[in-house]
């Protein structure tokens, strides 16, 4: 009887140890996941911020071989060949001086929107290939999106699913990371306007 009792004690000890080991393995399976997610999220923010910085230096005529995706694919980046020595930011500032993102400043052609679409298509391709979508727009000082007719600056075609299109335009897709960059422009009266360039990036599942 005594031998049986001590055997049960031994088996109980083994079961307690097994339970403890299982708990540690359970904890281990999720260890580092949150940190890795935080690093990925911070990397995407850095990546998009660096893209915005690069827009101030990139010569638009160098974007002439870029292929556009999403709603902007009806346009061609080849047209930018005619604008050497202009940076993307410079053309974009000229374009939105009339508060409309439409490739013209009043009636003068200023393809700032096209330059932005081509530059983002080129720079953000690593994010798109790894399963992210993007949508870009310019916000007025009151945080209202500027009117942007004809096509959208996005990796997606927005006319297919209207609910999804609204979610993308409002940056409310699940897991969306919103990056706002100050973007100072000059209006028709030569007054400074504090617009913002907003880029939303979300994981496509």
């Amino acid at each position: 009887m005594k031998g049986q009792a001590s055997l049960v004690d031994g088996i109980l000890f083994f079961l307690v140890v097994s339970g403890a080991v299982a708990l540690i393995f359970f904890f281990l399976s999720s260890y580092g996941y949150a940190q890795s997610e935080a690093l990925t999220s911070s990397y995407i923010v850095d990546y998009v911020q660096d893209t915005i910085k690069a827009l101030y230096y990139t010569d638009v005529s160098k974007l002439n071989t870029t292929t556009l995706s999403g709603s902007a694919s009806i346009m061609s980046c080849e047209d930018l060949k005619a604008y050497p020595s202009n940076s993307v930011a410079m053309l974009l500032k000229k374009d939105i001086s009339d508060d409309v993102l439409n490739d013209t400043y009043y009636k003068v052609e200023q393809p700032g929107k096209l330059a932005l679409a081509c530059a983002l298509s080129e720079y953000l391709q690593p994010l798109v290939y790894t399963g992210y979508g993007y949508y870009a727009t310019v916000l007025s000082p009151t945080d209202e999106p500027l009117s942007s007719p004809y096509y959208n600056i996005s990796s997606e075609i927005l006319s297919v699913d209207l609910n999804k299109a609204a979610a993308i335009e409002n940056c409310s897709m699940p897991g969306t990371i919103v990056i706002n960059a100050p973007f100072r422009t000059v209006d028709e009266n030569m007054g400074e306007v504090d617009d913002k360039l907003r880029i939303c990036v979300w994981p496509k599942s």
């Binding site: 031998g3 001590s6 055997l7 140890v17 097994s18 080991v21």
Partner: peptide, 21 residues
């Protein structure tokens, strides 16, 4: 000793499992 001998095996197995883990 003979009475306790059978319990040594699960105890030692438990200790080995714990240390290895």
């Amino acid at each position: 000793i003979g009475d306790d001998l059978p319990s040594f095996f699960p105890i030692i197995a438990g200790i080995i499992l714990f240390l290895t883990s």
